[in-house]
């Protein structure tokens, strides 16, 4: 990725303001137009570099809940189990990791009760145990890409 793109990406990671023309300051800084900035974001989305451009919610501030789950999935069933888990809209970020506990995913929902229901449904559908590892405290830091 060219340096300028990386700089733009880093600026956009910090977020835009809820103001009439939120891309105007960036366009000026990068010596381009607002249309060019949004076109670049659209291209990154189309290329799969970004999953989304939008709000990052703090679900817990809304009375919602989020947890990290882990499963030990037999390797030959991994893809089928990943598909079953992924069908739940409450599931995000499902990663295969190199460990006996090889499937790790996040569940976020409007209530802790809903999370429990999703976990029970996944256990029923897959016949596998789900470890529920809720967050107790977050030490938050933004991800900013380092220079190449």
């Amino acid at each position: 990725m060219p340096d300028r793109d990386r700089e733009l990406l880093a600026a956009l990671l910090r977020g835009i303001e809820p103001e009439e023309r939120p891309f105007r300051a960036l366009a000026e800084r990068f010596g381009t137009s607002e249309e060019a900035i949004v076109a670049r974001i659209r291209r990154w989305l189309a290329e799969g570099l970004l999953t989304r451009f939008g709000p990052l919610f703090d679900i817990e501030k809304l009375g919602g809940a989020v947890t990290l789950c882990a499963m030990a999935v037999p390797p030959e069933r991994f893809e089928a189990v990943a598909a079953a888990v992924g069908r739940h809209p409450e599931v995000a970020h499902n990663y295969e990791r190199a460990h006996h506990l090889n499937m790790w995913f996040v569940v976020a929902a409007e209530s802790r009760a809903r999370i429990d229901a999703v976990i029970r449904a996944i256990e029923r559908e897959t016949g596998l145990a789900v470890l529920d590892l809720p967050k107790e405290r977050e030490y938050f830091l933004e991800f900013v890409p380092e220079p190449p």
């Binding site: 990725m1 990406l9 956009l12 990671l13 910090r14 977020g15 835009i16 303001e17 809820p18 939120p22 974001i41 290329e47 799969g48 570099l49 970004l50 999953t51 989304r52 451009f53 939008g54 709000p55 990052l56 919610f57 703090d58 501030k61 809304l62 991800f143 890409p145 190449p148």
Partner: peptide
Amino acid sequence: RDGGVVRRFGLVVRHRRLG
């Protein structure tokens, strides 16, 4: 945003695609 419900309006990147 000020109430903390929305942390920010911005990008969600795929780290792998970024290298």
